[in-house]
């Protein structure tokens, strides 16, 4: 019966270690070195396996403080997931639409979503911040951020 958090985490870690070890044993061989590229990964895989098993049987229960940290209201998880989703969409459109447009929309949408209602300030920040960053990167530092569909 799996009860504690430690045991759940431990099982996930064992799965990671097993997958990692499987890949380590299937690495391509290179004939001209005495110690090949698989040595360190194999060691790491077994170390993780041992540690994960040790965690499974670790008796020390969590402190109250640690437990408290894990109590996150369902609603907040949804908020975080939504922000995560926004980041995902941002990344997806980043090179297609360009830095300026995506960043403008993101700052406006994300801060409004999180409860910021001063539209004027929000609008100014979402234009000035990306604009300044874009100018500095593209024109002063010659590091090209994606231009996207805008002509500059």
């Amino acid at each position: 019966m799996i009860k504690t958090l430690h045991q759940k985490v431990s099982l996930i870690l064992i799965a990671i270690a097993a997958g990692y070890l499987y890949l380590s044993y299937n690495l391509k061989e290179y004939p001209y070195v005495p110690v090949d590229s698989d040595l360190v990964p194999k060691v790491l895989g077994y170390v993780l396996l041992v540690l994960a098993v040790a965690l499974f049987f670790d008796k020390s229960s969590e402190t109250e403080e640690e437990k408290e940290k894990r109590v996150v209201p369902k609603k907040e998880i949804l908020v975080m997931a939504a922000v995560g989703g926004m980041i995902f969409v941002y990344i997806f459109l980043f090179e297609i639409l360009g830095f300026l447009i995506t960043t403008f929309v993101f700052i406006l949408a994300c801060s409004a979503f999180l409860g910021y209602r001063k539209w004027m300030t929000s609008l100014i920040v979402s234009i000035v911040f990306p604009g300044a960053l874009y100018y500095v990167f593209n024109y002063l530092l010659q590091i090209r951020l994606p231009q996207g569909i805008l002509p500059f």
Binding site: L93, I96, L97, I101, G148, I149
Partner: peptide, 9 residues
Amino acid sequence: LILFLSILT
């Protein structure tokens, strides 16, 4: 708007 602009490019 996004759709329109991407068609444009």
